[in-house]
Simulated assay, not measured.
Amino acid sequence: MDRFPLPRLATVLLAAALPLAACSKDSEQPAQTDTPTSESPSRTQLVDEVSQRFSTLAPASLFSQLEQCSVTDRSGSYDCSGSDVGQFQFFDSDAKAASTTQLLTELRSSRVVEDTGARVVGWSTLGTSAIVTVVDNDRGQVLQQLVSMDQDDPREVIYELGLAARPS
C-alpha cells in the first residue's frame, strides 16, 4: 500500500494538530465569559454529558478529573480540560474515526499501543509534538490530546491516563 508522500503527511498531521494546538496541558486556559442560559447546559452538565457520551474512550477516572467542557463549532465535538489531566478534544464522527484509524495504523510517524479493530489507541507525531488518540470505530468516536514529547512520553501518558493497559 502506498504511503503518504512527505508533503501530504505533513499536511495531514498539521491538519490534525491545528485544532489541538490549544490542548497542551501546559497552555493557559482562555477566559470563559459566556454564562449558561436556560437553553444551554452548564459546564458541569456538559462534563457529565461528555462522560456518558464518550464513556468507551476513556476510564471513569479520567472523566472525573475533567473540570469543564465546551461545545466547539463542530457538531458532536467538545473541548474539555482538567488541571491534573490537561486538555482533550472529543469527536462524534464516523468519518473522523475512520480517517484517524487509518492515520494511526498506516503512517510511520504513528505508533499503536492497542488495536482490536473496534478500538485503536496510539499517537502520531509531528516534530516534538504527539497527538495521543483513542478511536472507537464501532461508535464512530475519537478522543485526542496534544502532548509535548519534550516533556512527556506519549506511551506513558496513555498508560497513566488509563487509555490502554500496560503490557504484563
Rank of each mutant, 00 (worst) to 15 (best):
G162L: 07
V157L: 06
S93P: 08
T100K: 05
V85Q: 01
A130R: 05
F4I: 01
E28R: 11
S61N: 01
T116E: 06
E67H: 07
A164T: 09
S38M: 06
D136I: 05
T105Y: 04
V71I: 08
A21R: 12
V113Q: 14
S61D: 15
Q45P: 00
D92T: 04
S93G: 13
S64T: 08
A118H: 09
Q68D: 07
A17L: 03
I131S: 11
A31T: 13
S40F: 10
G76K: 09
S27D: 13
L57G: 06
F90I: 00
D79V: 06
L163Y: 11
D79C: 06
V142S: 11
G140M: 11
F91E: 14
G82C: 08
E39H: 07
M149A: 09
Q102A: 10
V121N: 13
R139H: 11
S99N: 12
R166C: 02
V121Q: 00
Q141I: 02
A16C: 12
E160W: 04
S70P: 01
E39A: 12
D84M: 05
F91G: 01
S24L: 15
I158V: 14
G76T: 09
L62N: 03
A10Q: 05
Q145A: 15
F4S: 04
Q68M: 04
A58D: 13
S93H: 06
F63C: 03
V113M: 15
T72V: 01
V134D: 02
I158Y: 06
S81C: 02
Q151L: 13
P167N: 10
Q145R: 04
I131G: 01
G162E: 10
A165H: 07
E156V: 07
A22T: 02
L18G: 01
A58F: 03
T44Y: 10
P167M: 07
F54H: 08
L20G: 00
Q151A: 07
Y159S: 07
R119F: 13
V157M: 06
L57N: 04
R108A: 15
P7Q: 02
F88W: 14
S99T: 12
N137F: 05
